[in-house]
Design a protein around this nucleic acid. Structure first.
Lengths: 197, 197
DNA sequence: GTCTATAGTAGGATAGAC
DNA sequence: GTCTATCCTACTATAGAC
């Protein structure tokens, strides 16, 4: 393991991953050919295979980058004071997602490919489980702080409610990707209005 | 157009579509090869191409069959008396979906491929829009009957709430397909407990 | 209508020079 | 590490016999 090369390798991988993401956005993961990733990156086949063992490895790496950082949003919010009500979290998550990947449709592709590709499914699974954990913790804390609910009871409530918050985000993703005239703002307003607090 | 052949053709198409669905369940739409559909159907390439112009035509036909009949569930429920509360609808829709296609994961594949395949997206789009229409109508009716809400006001409420009902179903689909230990029953109970009525 | 056999092609991955 | 050129597999769809 050479010493100068390490940060160079990382930078190159970043470069390739970002080019791949741009390409994936247009045609999805599997439907994008290596030729397109190669063209988008401006590099060559040999260069790319020097950094990734296969196209699947690129997909998995890009997928991790895409979904990896939404959990941080929640954890960061849990540090703020006063705590925002849980139904406002989907808006934060959606906004973070849009900032990170531009088009939520890529999440749909990720889930769809996860059905048959175990490596992709692992990525998708991890992020949902970690997100759920963060949301449960946040929601429990919120019940305790806001309504003085005892911790055990608050945990139960939070465990019931967190999957609904996740669904709110997932529903946003599906509907905005598939229905052209989907009104995201009205949707998020409904979420905040009707989900429990 | 021969007269004996017509119902025969329909039966053959059904047969092929069902075999294709079994194959798609294993590997998704695009990742399933014609060879697998051919093997699963017990027919030959020539026979299949006699009934479908292309693999894409099979995908679109199968997709339509999969999603086509959930709207009927809602319309049927709208005829019952007394009307069940809207938050119980996701349970009905999920149950109908599971009965029809066995594994909800195929819906994820459908959405995922819809991102890049216009024909598939059209199918997915149509079903969401029609389902939303049916849910809005049902929910409006429910508000009028149960709370005596005036029709215009009930329509507004219903338009706000229907997307949340759709999200509840979509969230079920995503979470049950991706998270192995997802507790569907607890999830649906939460939906019924927390969504507005 | 259905079969077998195959044409035609796209795409992932590698070899070898620099 | 990166390039060019290419191998080779796997796939969709068709041709032609029955």
């Amino acid at each position: 393991m050479p010493k100068v090369t390490e940060e160079y390798r990382v930078a190159r991988r970043d470069e390739i991953a970002e080019a791949a993401l741009r390409a994936f956005r247009r045609k999805g993961f599997q439907a994008t050919s290596m030729a397109e990733i190669i063209a988008e990156s401006g590099l060559s086949a040999g260069a790319i295979y020097g950094h990734y063992a296969s196209k699947d490895a690129i997909i998995v790496d890009v997928a991790s980058r895409v979904v990896g950082n939404r959990i941080l949003d929640v954890e960061r919010l849990a540090q703020t004071e006063p705590l925002a009500p849980p139904p406002t979290l989907p808006r934060v998550l959606v906004a973070g997602m849009l900032r990170a990947i531009g088009n939520p449709a890529i999440m749909l592709q990720l889930w769809g490919e996860g059905v048959t590709d175990p490596a992709v499914r692992t990525v998708a699974h991890d992020v949902i489980v970690r997100l759920r954990g963060a949301l449960v913790e946040y929601t429990s804390l919120w019940h305790q702080r806001t309504h003085g609910t005892p911790p055990e009871e608050a945990d139960v409530l939070a465990a019931e409610q967190a999957p609904l918050l996740i669904s709110a985000v997932q529903g946003f993703v599906v509907q905005s990707a598939i229905v052209p005239d989907f009104d995201g703002e009205a949707y998020l307003a409904s979420v905040e209005k009707y989900l429990p607090r």
